[in-house]
Design a binder for these strands. Structure first.
Lengths: 163, 163
DNA sequence: TAATAACCTACTAATATACTCGGGTAAATA
DNA sequence: TATTTACCCGAGTATATTAGTAGGTTATTA
């Protein structure tokens, strides 16, 4: 089982999408700026998210990504599954052939753990995350930061044009 | 967060120890044979388990390893923690500096997940595993297999001596 | 038609896993 | 006391994955 930045990035990006999808599609460069994730890496992750029908893409200027369905109908487990192979804790992917064709001594333990994790992450929708106080606070800070950043870069442009 | 063969091997080996510790210390080569884990790799894992005071070692012929305390007082979480760094699902190890010094959007989610996993694995002792029906069945098969294997090798020796 | 942003493929540095190898050292047995 | 057993320790290595680069193509809009 693996749960690394890959899965975390995917969930973070999807949550960013959920938070900013009121005003049309969200571009990956916006997400990249707000969440500090490399643009090219986001592209790779969103290719997988799109294949799993979690997001819809809109090409061209003003384009970007949009959630494929209601925030309440997308769950963290689905996002993690889409980019990682799975949140499976067994080594044999549930096939029970962990010890040379036979079941290993601890196979069932890892099955139980997998179920535990999957149940937990399956119970959390993007809607639920958006409602959380801690998420709202971080999101607000990020919005301010990115506004300040774009303001600062605008000032630089203005200064360059004037100077 | 990582839960790979490393942690699984460690739990499997410790469970093997718990199952066979009635008749004195258990050697790593016995565990290696029964569980199909490389001996050298086991040595590395047991070095860590010993540092965490989960096992005691007995050197010399007839030596091996022994659980440091009652089977009911050793929990899966402790074993996984001993060989992996942790079962922490956050990238920042709980420091909340996941996004360039600040808290990332999904930090609290991964904290919750970490707690979930840790609570689950902390609730399972070696004693509990030993009692499980599925564990007993696999253990019985492994004992038969290893008896047959040692019998077969003995037959070879006998045949060589006679022939 | 110029700019934008998705889309796609391939490559790469760094890291971790799951080992192997080769030597030690301590303790029991013959 | 010699030998065996089995722990102990460090170095090295193949493989895989992660996280990220680089450089291009396609579709859309202004």
């Amino acid at each position: 089982m693996r749960l690394t930045t890959k899965g975390r990035y995917a969930v973070t990006a999807m949550l960013d999408l959920a938070l900013h999808s009121d005003s049309g599609p969200v571009s990956l460069s916006d997400i990249s700026n707000r969440q500090g994730i490399s643009l090219s890496y986001l592209e790779q992750l969103f290719a997988k998210l799109r294949k799993q029908n979690l997001v819809l893409s809109v090409r061209g200027p003003g384009g970007g990504y949009r959630l494929s369905r209601d925030r309440g109908d997308i769950f963290v487990a689905q996002i993690v599954d889409a980019v990682n192979e799975s949140v499976d804790a067994t080594g044999c992917k549930g096939r029970s052939d962990c010890q040379g064709g036979n079941t290993c001594l601890t196979h069932h333990l890892w099955c139980d753990l997998s179920d535990q994790i999957h149940d937990f992450l399956s119970g959390i929708s993007l809607e639920k995350l958006v409602q959380r106080q801690d998420v709202r606070e971080v999101a607000e800070r990020q919005d301010n930061d990115s506004k300040m950043a774009s303001c600062a870069s605008q000032e630089k442009i203005t200064a360059a044009l004037i100077g």
